[in-house]
Design a protein around this nucleic acid. Sequence first.
DNA 1: ACCTGAACACCGTTCAAGT
DNA 2: ACCTGAACACCGTTCAAGT
Lengths: 236, 236
Amino acid sequence: MAHVLVAPRLRLNRDRVLQAAVQLADRIGIDALSMRRLAEELGVVPMALYKHVANKDELLDGMVDVTVAEIDPPDRDLDWKAAVRLRVLSARQMLLRHPWARSVLESRTRETPTVLDYMESTIGMFLAGGFSADLTHHVMHALGSRMWGFTQELFDASAGPDRPPVDTAAQVAQLQAMAERYPHILQISAVAAHDDSVVARGCDDRFEFEFALDLLLDGFERLRDAGWSSAASPTA
Amino acid sequence: MAHVLVAPRLRLNRDRVLQAAVQLADRIGIDALSMRRLAEELGVVPMALYKHVANKDELLDGMVDVTVAEIDPPDRDLDWKAAVRLRVLSARQMLLRHPWARSVLESRTRETPTVLDYMESTIGMFLAGGFSADLTHHVMHALGSRMWGFTQELFDASAGPDRPPVDTAAQVAQLQAMAERYPHILQISAVAAHDDSVVARGCDDRFEFEFALDLLLDGFERLRDAGWSSAASPTA
DNA sequence: ACCTGAACACCGTTCAAGT
DNA sequence: ACCTGAACACCGTTCAAGT
């Protein structure tokens, strides 16, 4: 097979395994990435991988490390708000390059050094911006996965299976049924329908992401300026 | 086996299959839930399930429907903010009952009627509260998965495998290493350390959730009162 | 030190057959 | 109409053996 010729039995090591796994996931998706498939890709028997990663879980942890390390380091010349904003958007760019990384990042519970480094420097941006440790703690929680450049979108059409093509008559009938049962959904979808596609298409993902991010950052700033403390919080 | 005696061959139907799947997932977790295991639970051969759900994906969609239907309907006597708040917290309660539902909800891309109903009525709360369709659209995106009562927490310790118990000497050494490399992480963790456990424990999940939720709701209100429109948005 | 072969205990799903 | 049996093409991982 082709890949045996392309990769003629270089000695494996952990890094080669992780790099190959990331590239393979980029190409065939995370569901199709199995230890067996990865081994085949490397021209090696499945068990050979287990010398370099303990098991599949550790492989996934390693793949997270590779991708998180791609996120730009903080820009020290910017104020906290611009710095956080830019960095989160850099994380988002990384996720656009590795679409599978989101779900893997979500399912990980192991704190690898690379992930801790990322959190450490992000926390540092808030502290340097005059946030108390108390407020920074809650702000980091509020940021949550947005720190990694993603949020759960309502329906990520691109992540799903391709819809079967629907003929125009059926589409019209479907819309009429929708209009009756889900008038509000149609109403707010129409706002975003810049082009011909009628429902839940053409939302500007970047706009939505920055809208929520800026709403949060503005809220954080307001709390900081008001001298917010969890002890005096109205919701406590 | 016990379950054969307990469930002596009632005729299966889609609803019995879904209910059994939800209960089984509550008990053994979503990873352990297989078509084969579920069939065994129902005292039936695996293939018998395929008469009632097309495949595993449809089973998961059905399980989402069952749990989403448990979320309280909107309280019409409350103003929009209190109503949204209460409902999202009700969703959160449902997720505490069915911890597996979060990841399944995240991975679904099919809009089932139950899920659409939930979105429809949530959108309705904002529209009734005087939000424009335009703003409601973006507000729903900003809410994102928080609408379902969850957010990605930084490290969900409870979701991970049990940590091996560490002896005190090793723990002290580990803390010293952390203090050197991750001073900021330690600093904001200390704030939340109410009890003896030292790092990343004892965060009040409900407090964190409401902190971020209220921050967003307040931000939404501010934009509404300012007559926000995406056409005039500074980030556009 | 690194890789292999054969095996184990699982998956989801199809197809043809039973009642 | 509903359930079964046998089979297919996959998984992750262990263990003992090869070089």
